[in-house]
Lab assay of single mutants.
Amino acid sequence: MQRVNMIMAESPGLITICLLGYLLSAECTVFLDHENANKILNRPKRYNSGKLEEFVQGNLERECMEEKCSFEEAREVFENTERTTEFWKQYVDGDQCESNPCLNGGSCKDDINSYECWCPFGFEGKNCELDVTCNIKNGRCEQFCKNSADNKVVCSCTEGYRLAENQKSCEPAVPFPCGRVSVSQTSKLTRAETVFPDVDYVNSTEAETILDNITQSTQSFNDFTRVVGGEDAKPGQFPWQVVLNGKVDAFCGGSIVNEKWIVTAAHCVETGVKITVVAGEHNIEETEHTEQKRNVIRIIPHHNYNAAINKYNHDIALLELDEPLVLNSYVTPICIADKEYTNIFLKFGSGYVSGWGRVFHKGRSALVLQYLRVPLVDRATCLRSTKFTIYNNMFCAGFHEGGRDSCQGDSGGPHVTEVEGTSFLTGIISWGEECAMKGKYGIYTKVSRYVNWIKEKTKLT
């Protein structure tokens, strides 16, 4: 034993070699072989497995989906700052455009905790909710729209109204504003409101030439003092309507412009014939205590009207009353817009006519005020429907199939267009061939041609 100890002390290297040989010859039971080890760690190889990531292109799944990435790591994937920024906006807080917040056709661009709407022409605001041009839906104005110097929408209202708090709607500024039905039992019968379409306001006024200088022999019209197929109006439903009495009662109609003036057809009036105007009328054979009678003290036909040349060209006249009318729910003026808007309103496509005229061709006159909704007829169809001249200051309205029309005794009465609950004068009943005849239409004086003249002559002093 002493000898062994001496050998170990003198030859430590020998001992180490012996131990190493023993270990190498022993069977290893701690580690699995290569094949079995792979069965336990069965993990798919990654895209760049075996390579240094710093030297390969980034992978979106590896960089940002398996674990949260930084902007720089995302930049490695896209290799483009702009594309990385677009991805980053949604990656950080989701897609803010998912709810489609942009209105009126706006395009949404996502941002971090926010979004941006790219608005089409005519709109602005956070969600493109603000109209900035009158060309689109009248700028959301209830009545009139004008573009300011910086191309912003400025709404306005006709006389007797003021802008509401929203700067879009119009509200009454006087007790009985024009064009409004205020009798409670008839307010439910107000005709369907007309909503502004998209309009090209630059070209809204037709490029028409008034044929002022045409000389033409007097034409022989049949029954051209021209509501057939209409309905009984309720008291106060058309408070701007008046009836004219002269040699015979209810020979023509008219509309209240203001307390002192009536507008009617020029062919209705004769110099030297006494005319009485009755406002607030409903049943011409009954006294309903809503009527107001006034005498006409002055007749002003349009300066281009000449019955000797043509009885229905420039067929418009103004009547001055001896005493002002007292405005109330049964006696209310009709609204008159400017030339541009009167023309736009007419193009809405349908209007209402009213009167006490004959209820059928050569038949009896109506006792109760009649009204009828009539569609506008395109000019080409209008011209083809008659052998008589249709001037540019006239328009056609009615039904091709016949059966409904204005008729004798309705002449001078109103053709009105309702705009968001307020009625505007767009025409004056003038003439036609018979009444409600198939293929024939009622012919009306186009008020847009005469609004400046009306307003100039009827100013209240």
Results as ranks from 00 to 15, higher is better:
residue 182 S to L: 03
residue 68 K to W: 15
residue 94 G to R: 14
residue 264 T to M: 02
residue 115 Y to E: 14
residue 460 L to I: 04
residue 119 C to D: 02
residue 5 N to G: 13
residue 137 K to F: 06
residue 201 Y to S: 08
residue 459 K to G: 12
residue 123 F to S: 13
residue 290 T to W: 09
residue 341 Y to W: 14
residue 222 N to A: 05
residue 327 L to K: 03
residue 137 K to P: 13
residue 444 Y to W: 01
residue 12 P to V: 07
residue 77 V to N: 15
residue 351 G to I: 01
residue 404 R to G: 14
residue 36 N to M: 07
residue 127 N to T: 09
residue 329 S to Y: 07
residue 257 V to P: 00
residue 161 Y to S: 01
residue 277 V to C: 03
residue 410 D to G: 03
residue 161 Y to D: 01
residue 234 K to G: 10
residue 340 E to I: 11
residue 235 P to L: 13
residue 189 L to S: 08
residue 254 G to C: 00
residue 364 R to M: 14
residue 366 A to D: 14
residue 380 A to Q: 09
residue 394 M to E: 02
residue 443 I to H: 14
residue 276 T to W: 07
residue 136 I to S: 09
residue 401 E to H: 13
residue 21 G to F: 14
residue 30 V to C: 10
residue 264 T to I: 02
residue 218 T to N: 10
residue 94 G to K: 09
residue 424 F to R: 00
residue 225 T to C: 13
residue 192 A to G: 06
residue 151 N to W: 04
residue 290 T to G: 10
residue 24 L to Y: 06
residue 289 H to R: 05
residue 449 R to N: 15
residue 334 I to C: 01
residue 404 R to E: 04
residue 204 S to C: 14
residue 164 A to K: 05
residue 186 T to A: 09
residue 344 I to P: 03
residue 44 P to G: 08
residue 48 N to I: 04
residue 78 F to T: 02
residue 447 V to Y: 01
residue 108 C to M: 02
residue 346 L to V: 10
residue 21 G to E: 02
residue 81 T to M: 05
residue 13 G to V: 10
residue 345 F to M: 09
residue 352 Y to F: 12
residue 191 R to L: 10
residue 421 G to V: 02
residue 438 K to E: 15
residue 444 Y to P: 00
residue 75 R to F: 06
residue 288 E to Q: 06
residue 437 M to P: 13
residue 247 K to H: 06
residue 415 H to L: 07
residue 226 R to V: 10
residue 142 E to L: 03
residue 214 I to L: 04
residue 412 G to E: 04
residue 337 A to Y: 01
residue 207 A to H: 09
residue 56 V to D: 04
residue 50 G to H: 12
residue 326 V to H: 14
residue 324 P to G: 05
residue 369 L to F: 05
residue 408 Q to K: 07
residue 190 T to K: 10
residue 363 G to N: 09
residue 287 T to Q: 09
residue 59 N to R: 08
residue 350 S to V: 13
residue 333 P to G: 03
residue 58 G to S: 10
residue 22 Y to N: 03
residue 337 A to R: 01
residue 359 V to P: 03
residue 221 F to H: 10
residue 364 R to F: 10
residue 255 S to F: 01
residue 323 E to D: 10
residue 411 S to A: 08
residue 2 Q to Y: 13
residue 391 Y to E: 15
residue 141 C to H: 00
residue 47 Y to V: 10
residue 27 E to Y: 03
residue 50 G to F: 10
residue 404 R to W: 15
residue 362 K to Y: 14
residue 211 L to H: 10
residue 221 F to A: 09
residue 130 L to E: 12
residue 234 K to V: 11
residue 356 W to E: 03
residue 284 I to P: 07
residue 301 P to E: 07
residue 337 A to T: 03
residue 368 V to G: 13
residue 58 G to F: 05
residue 227 V to W: 12
residue 59 N to M: 05
residue 130 L to T: 11
residue 114 S to I: 06
residue 122 G to I: 02
residue 301 P to Y: 12
residue 57 Q to N: 15
residue 453 W to L: 01
residue 447 V to H: 00
residue 421 G to Y: 04
residue 158 T to P: 03
residue 286 E to W: 09
residue 157 C to T: 00
residue 58 G to A: 09
residue 109 K to Q: 09
residue 324 P to I: 02
residue 66 E to V: 08
residue 193 E to C: 13
residue 418 E to R: 07
residue 289 H to W: 08
residue 241 Q to S: 03
residue 335 C to I: 01
residue 329 S to D: 15
residue 263 V to G: 00
residue 407 C to P: 05
residue 81 T to W: 05
residue 251 F to R: 10
residue 134 C to N: 02
residue 215 T to Y: 07
residue 154 V to C: 05
residue 252 C to K: 00
residue 200 D to W: 10
residue 10 E to A: 14
residue 335 C to V: 00
residue 10 E to S: 14
residue 402 G to F: 12
residue 71 F to C: 15
residue 141 C to I: 00
residue 83 R to N: 14
residue 424 F to P: 00
residue 177 P to G: 03
residue 445 T to V: 06
residue 436 A to H: 12
residue 133 T to W: 06
residue 277 V to G: 00
residue 255 S to K: 00
residue 25 S to H: 03
residue 366 A to L: 13
residue 415 H to C: 02
residue 423 S to E: 02
residue 51 K to Q: 15
residue 48 N to E: 15
residue 76 E to G: 15
residue 50 G to R: 07
residue 312 Y to S: 05
residue 401 E to W: 13
residue 442 G to A: 15
residue 253 G to M: 14
residue 35 E to Q: 09
residue 236 G to Q: 05
residue 403 G to L: 10
residue 288 E to T: 05
residue 36 N to V: 08
residue 316 I to G: 00
residue 188 K to W: 09
residue 284 I to F: 10
residue 229 G to P: 08
residue 160 G to D: 07
residue 344 I to D: 12
residue 396 C to Y: 02
residue 310 N to H: 12
residue 212 D to R: 11
residue 346 L to F: 09
residue 186 T to E: 10
residue 42 N to E: 08
residue 213 N to H: 05
residue 294 R to E: 00
residue 157 C to F: 00
residue 153 V to N: 09
residue 459 K to D: 13
residue 118 W to C: 13
residue 20 L to Q: 01
residue 107 S to Q: 12
residue 111 D to I: 14
residue 452 N to T: 11
residue 382 C to A: 02
residue 410 D to K: 11
residue 34 H to V: 09
residue 423 S to G: 09
residue 383 L to E: 15
residue 286 E to Q: 04
residue 189 L to V: 07
residue 404 R to P: 08
residue 224 F to W: 11
residue 211 L to Y: 10
residue 120 P to M: 07
residue 402 G to L: 13
residue 272 G to M: 11
residue 383 L to F: 13
residue 90 Q to D: 12
residue 65 M to C: 10
residue 413 G to W: 15
residue 157 C to H: 00
residue 133 T to M: 13
residue 24 L to R: 01
residue 210 I to H: 05
residue 425 L to Q: 02
residue 16 T to G: 07
residue 280 G to S: 01
residue 267 H to L: 02
residue 76 E to A: 06
residue 255 S to A: 14
residue 16 T to S: 03
residue 25 S to T: 08
residue 81 T to N: 06
residue 175 P to V: 07
residue 417 T to K: 01
residue 223 D to C: 11
residue 143 Q to S: 00
residue 248 V to N: 07
residue 388 F to Q: 15
residue 340 E to H: 05
residue 111 D to P: 05
residue 70 S to N: 10
residue 447 V to F: 01
residue 395 F to V: 02
residue 324 P to Y: 03
residue 244 L to A: 01
residue 245 N to S: 06
residue 129 E to F: 05
residue 424 F to Q: 01
residue 225 T to I: 07
residue 411 S to H: 12
residue 153 V to D: 05
residue 236 G to Y: 03
residue 170 C to A: 00
residue 286 E to I: 07
residue 312 Y to H: 10
residue 238 F to M: 11
residue 403 G to R: 05
residue 315 D to Q: 01
residue 28 C to V: 00
residue 299 I to V: 09
residue 276 T to Y: 05
residue 443 I to K: 07
residue 38 N to G: 11
residue 345 F to R: 01
residue 242 V to C: 03
residue 325 L to S: 00
residue 367 L to I: 07
residue 11 S to A: 12
residue 262 I to R: 00
residue 228 V to F: 06
residue 347 K to S: 14
residue 167 Q to D: 10
residue 245 N to G: 06
residue 387 K to P: 04
residue 126 K to G: 08
residue 32 L to G: 15
residue 233 A to E: 07
residue 363 G to S: 12
residue 202 V to H: 08
residue 76 E to W: 07
residue 217 S to K: 03
residue 238 F to P: 03
residue 216 Q to R: 06
residue 446 K to M: 14
residue 442 G to F: 11
residue 179 G to A: 00
residue 80 N to I: 03
residue 89 K to E: 03
residue 277 V to Q: 00
residue 166 N to L: 02
residue 54 E to S: 09
residue 288 E to H: 09
residue 148 S to I: 05
residue 450 Y to V: 01
residue 235 P to Q: 06
residue 325 L to D: 00
residue 399 F to S: 03
residue 75 R to P: 06
residue 26 A to D: 01
residue 232 D to E: 08
residue 388 F to Y: 14
residue 344 I to M: 12
residue 286 E to R: 08
residue 370 Q to P: 04
residue 238 F to Y: 04
residue 381 T to H: 12
residue 88 W to P: 15
residue 117 C to K: 03
residue 97 C to Y: 02
residue 311 K to H: 05
residue 62 R to L: 12
residue 250 A to Y: 06
residue 244 L to F: 05
residue 127 N to C: 09
residue 144 F to W: 01
residue 430 S to P: 04
residue 70 S to Q: 15
residue 250 A to G: 12
residue 163 L to V: 06
residue 34 H to G: 03
residue 194 T to Y: 12
residue 110 D to P: 15
residue 136 I to F: 11
residue 221 F to L: 11
residue 16 T to E: 02
residue 109 K to C: 06
residue 108 C to A: 01
residue 460 L to C: 12
residue 410 D to W: 15
residue 301 P to Q: 10
residue 116 E to R: 04
residue 353 V to W: 03
residue 371 Y to M: 12
residue 365 S to D: 06
residue 394 M to K: 06
residue 72 E to V: 15
residue 350 S to Y: 08
residue 460 L to W: 14
residue 148 S to R: 04
residue 2 Q to M: 13
residue 241 Q to G: 05
residue 153 V to R: 11
residue 174 V to S: 07
residue 425 L to R: 00
residue 288 E to G: 03
residue 455 K to G: 05
residue 456 E to V: 08
residue 154 V to P: 04
residue 366 A to H: 12
residue 49 S to D: 15
residue 104 N to E: 08
residue 168 K to H: 11
residue 226 R to L: 06
residue 238 F to N: 03
residue 323 E to C: 04
residue 134 C to D: 02
residue 319 L to P: 00
residue 120 P to C: 04
residue 185 Q to G: 11
residue 403 G to W: 12
residue 105 G to A: 14
